[in-house]
Design a protein around this nucleic acid. Sequence first.
RNA 1: GCGCCCGUAGCUCAGUUGGAUAGAGUACUUGGCUUCGAACCAAGGGGUCGGGCGUUCGAAUCGCUCCGGGCGCGCCA
Length: 584
Amino acid sequence: MTLPVHTNFKSHFAELLSRALNTFSNSDLGINIEFARPKQVKHGDYSCNLAMQLAKPLRQDPRTIATLLINAMPASPYLEKVEVAGAGFINLFLKIATKQQFPRIVLESSKEFGCGDFGAGKKIQVEFVSANPTGPIHVGHGRGAAFGASLANVLTAAGFSVTREYYVNDAGRQMDILVVSTWLRYLELNGLTRPFPSNAYQGEYVRNMAQLIYKAHGNHYLRQPNSLLDNFIANVKGEADSEALLDQLIAETKNLLGQDYIYFHNFVLTEQLGECRNDLMEFGVVFDTWFSEQSLFEDGTVAHVIQLLEQKNYLYQQDGAKWFRSSDFGDEKDRVVQRENGQFTYFASDIAYHLNKFQRGFDRIINVWGADHHGYIPRVKGAIQALALDPSKLEIVLVQFAVLYRDGVKTPMSTRSGEFVTLRELRQEVGNDAARFFYLLRKSDQHLDFDLDLAKSQDNDNPVYYVQYAHARVCSVLEQWGENSSTLATADTALLTSTVELSLLQKLIDYPEIVDVAARELSPHLTAFYLRELAGEFHSYYNSTRFLVPEIPLRLARLALIASIRQVLANGLTLLGVSAPDKM
RNA sequence: GCGCCCGUAGCUCAGUUGGAUAGAGUACUUGGCUUCGAACCAAGGGGUCGGGCGUUCGAAUCGCUCCGGGCGCGCCA
């Protein structure tokens, strides 16, 4: 009996039960046939509650229905037996011989084991992080980075052709505020201290950028007449530290610097984007495309999309601004796309961005956003509908915020105020692997309490080492064995019969299903939890059973099992962006 | 005030298209290395699944309500 490499027993059994159902019910009841893993061995390997779901519509006792279903089920070469149990569960028991095939299947398919065909032939885009390039990547962004990167890996394993994209907000007011902040720091370096607004960018990195400019160009940018410089602050009107004052400051700085403003803008953008790209790369997070917001203005997409909406009569003029009728599509209120001063809003370029995404021919588009953007979803979906595109193609995954605690006190994480812990600091403290695993060990929509002191102190019993240790242990055993492990695929695995061995075999079988579900539910954390369980069962096996026994066939069988466990651990860790070390 | 997310063991979290006796890790207690790596294992205590009402054969999961926390509600991005 040879099993296909990508065996998915759940879908196989669902097919069998579905055919059984058709033999005695010709009406489509619209019930999904799903399987659970029973907690007790006596309940088999897969459990289905189909009969209980049918009890009401068919007006029959669930146990009777279950018996009818089992009798009508086509035979499967993989099944030992099928039983009715409890209130009407259908419990399926895999043949032991089927389970014993898996070390060979894993070893032969190697890195491919776990890959599926759920997304075969489909193009999918995952856009994530997309933090404003106005400061360093911090631990809040880190969560989105770890999640998005692993999600993309899981989707790739599920067969999708994945494009990883970072949307660069290089066109907005936040950039201008950063430019002005840098300009003020540059003035300070030239001995021209001006009041530094509390709502400008406070971080040390702003001073560093000013230093770089000063070192390269000295006082070159102070060549304007002194009177202009003297009046620089005097001209700025507005309540101290207000947003209006910042706007004034931006206008005055642009006025003062003229063409040199563009130099400052490009300098800080290039600098921050470079830092950001480096940080993420060192974190193991890479992108296929960095998409510039500014480019949407330059190539006319923004103007085009506004024109399209205008033609369809979805825009109107009010209070001097141009509004989009998003309330027609379920949004709370209409939204401004062009301000009174003629400037387009972020929303306007975002509509253009999404039109661009749709035009690139993806089958699915996934935006990974911080949870604070949830109120933004209706207007974007509305704009997509207004453009006569299919809003269901766009899926938005909200990643909850990481709330940072320091000495038990919640600390705000704000780039503007300069109060944040950078991703780089975290990585230096606990390492890449521990940081990646820590983020992935919770659901994306779960709030994350990030106790930095705890994260640092726990760097030695971070669960990631538990998984990596299992991998290193297998490597160590195989090294002591000393022979070529490629021969293990032919071992007689029928000798694996103990309770813990059968349980481990079932665990191997589970892996492709876990990857499949993780991709379907956009939940890479399932992989992390699975790996911890697999490692746990392995450690238990290690302590209870000796592998390098004198009997050669039994030795080979056990080595084949642990070698296949090592392969699955490595495959799973790769999806999470975590290394699988041979020694540690 | 309105909207979204959430509340599960001392702590950090899984489990949610309703299913069998609610699970891990950590902390605590006890035991296990002259034998393949003790970054490990074995055993134990620890729960009104925030409270209440409801829906039904069955609720941590669904509905209503209250309490508590996070986030959003801009001609910012």
